[in-house]
Design a protein around this nucleic acid. Sequence first.
DNA 1: AATTGTACCTGTCAGC
DNA 2: TGCTGACAGGTACAAT
Length: 304
Amino acid sequence: MPELPEVETVVSDLRRKVVGGRIVAVWCNWPKMIKDYARQSRLYVSLEATRRFKVDLLGESIEKVARRGKNILIYLSSDKVLLIHQKMTGHLLIGKWRIGKHTVVPLEPEAVVRDSYNHHIHLILTLSDGRMIALSDVRKFAKVILGSREQIETLPELTGLGPDALHSPLSAAEFFNILSKQRRKIKTVLLDPRVVAGIGNIYSDDILWQARIHPERPAHDLSRAEVTRIYKAMRTILAKAVALRGTSTSDFRDTEGKEGGYTEYRLVYQRTGSPCSRCKTPINRRVVGGRSAHFCPNCQRFLR
DNA sequence: AATTGTACCTGTCAGC
DNA sequence: TGCTGACAGGTACAAT
């Protein structure tokens, strides 16, 4: 779920609310979400590693928070870093809960109480002032990795990331050079974090609609003018979505349980059948690279 | 080497 | 009402 704007929203919340905090307790009821930095691709983590994860976090202070693609990096004292990836349905919430034997009961804030996320909280870091950072995830795809700064920053999923879709100094000309090496469909290429980091299914659809490019056009066939349109759309749409604190088409919420404001400005994502806001042609949906693509068959023609 | 398919999970919703 | 299948924001790895 969370794409660049949603992760950026969560990161800005963390910076404002928990930097300076000290971790005094760690609770987890889904050990598989804790990955070993040395074997981060392996599914299973030993009980020993889980125990060490908790012990290593105790007493650590949160010094700064950064975003790398869709990864959240929480820099701690003692030269440690906690990496969190929310994947499809992860939510980072800040509040207070009562941790029972089998349930987590929210004490505050009010906004979170009404939502079902409490039932899917699997990790809680308690700060010394009593507030908690909770990671909720219905589908349990989210992952966390704890290691030294060196260990985390050299993880292949970070070193292998392409330039940041919003904040990298990447120029339109450089973007053209990158895309000219890709024979895959442009929609698939935009979704590949090793090519460009931060774009997911919502914004890839909106970017391609804004740029008037069919999602199945091979990336290397795009002209300089077409790539420039994609580049400009990528920057403006992501900046707008960040300013509006993300999209809640599905269930994205910020750390207080509030929805994002970009939802009503969506151009095509999940608007199948609705009239295109440029030409009134009904929006199409088609599976591209295993993901659903929404586009205007008139504005975004395959042949130009 | 590049590209496509599969796995990881649970929930919701449409259709019968 | 209950069942079945499609679909949901991501990405690493296996298979081709």
